[in-house]
Simulated assay, not measured.
Amino acid sequence: MSMLQEIDYLPENLLALEANQLAAHLSGPTLIHLPGRRAQPLFVSVLMHGNETVGWEAIRTLLARYQGGQDLPRALSLFIGNVDAAAQGLRLLPGQPDYNRIWYGSEVAETPEHRVMEQVVERMRKRKPFASVDVHNNTGLNPHYACINRLDTRFFHLALLFSRTVVYFLRPKGVQSMAFADLCPSVTLECGKVGSAHGVEHARDYLEACLHLAEHPQHAVSHLDIDLFHTVAQVKISPLTSFGFSPGESDIVLAPDIDHFNFRELPAGTLFGWINGVGLDALDVRDEQGEAVAGDYFTIEEGQLCLHRSVMPSMLTKDLSVIRQDCLCYLMERYDSHLAQPVPNASGSG
């Protein structure tokens, strides 16, 4: 594991490189500070997961516009994360922690990578960032949406600049956006599948807009302008439980079109899959407090795994390795009770 590399210039020809070429030119996780007309920097993190290249592609195309000596509208601090995993097109390498689970508040066993993320936060705390944006792809059929970890007017506005679909969550812990929420308004962008030109363009245009923002709007967000969802549970498949999509071969056989459920409000009784000789303990379902709540959300009826109550899933995917490395999905509920009044500012500078 390399230590954090911190530089105040853009290495020559860096923007010409694909994500899988960065490891050959950067010694590891790299924090790059670039000046701009407004000194308070926009912080952007990319490649927290090595196979999610949209952030790097967006930054490449954005910064190329300013290569002719034109000043950035605002200073930019760019954190390029897991370049070693990106070299192999993987979310993370065997033996590595998930780079987006090891920031402050992490529940993952301590690793040298934790210290790298602590250094990033410490360096940026001194620079008083204007806003933080962490850019991701996902593998299932999901719309573009933004995630926040604070019910704060400034966070709402920063998210709405990307999409009217906004997800508020407190788990998983140890994510970049949660660590930076103590410093400034922060969001995570979910930009659809890898390789989508629309995802890259949307992220690039959003980052350009953030660089041009002079201040964060303070007025309350109308419930008419936002579709706000609250993540109420994370669903994992227990480590010793086998799963797949082929009938009869696994403890859990998932419904073949399961990724079509994302961002659909599903009724109780919706079929998620079939159970072979295991019980609900095959699922590890945790609420915001980390309590086991599988029975609140799922039921087994004549060998069928069904929803016990109406919820809206996100992040369902047919990629078995992602399900094992991360989770099966998140469960959400519509959440608009916090929009009537401006929310008092969270701690930290704006």
Rank of each mutant, 00 (worst) to 15 (best):
D98G: 03
A346T: 12
P143F: 00
N100A: 02
Q67I: 03
F162A: 12
L170T: 15
T165P: 07
P35Y: 00
G140V: 04
M124G: 11
L240E: 11
L228K: 15
S132V: 02
Q289S: 10
S196W: 02
L280S: 08
I102L: 01
M312W: 00
V194W: 00
I102C: 01
T153V: 03
W274M: 06
E52F: 08
L63T: 12
V311Q: 09
A75K: 14
A282P: 15
Y66I: 12
V187Y: 03
G244T: 08
I258K: 02
F79I: 13
L34N: 09
E249I: 03
L224D: 14
L17V: 11
D284E: 07
D84V: 06
F229S: 15
R125L: 09
V120A: 07
V200I: 11
V278L: 03
C327T: 09
T241H: 03
K318E: 05
R37A: 09
G28E: 05
D134W: 01
V311E: 03
Q341G: 02
R125C: 06
L283I: 12
L76R: 13
E249R: 15
L63W: 03
R60F: 00
I258P: 02
I275V: 15
D98H: 04
R264I: 04
E291F: 01
R127M: 07
R204C: 08
L31W: 06
L47W: 06
P313Q: 08
A292R: 12
H25F: 01
A23E: 09
T111M: 01
G50C: 06
M315P: 05
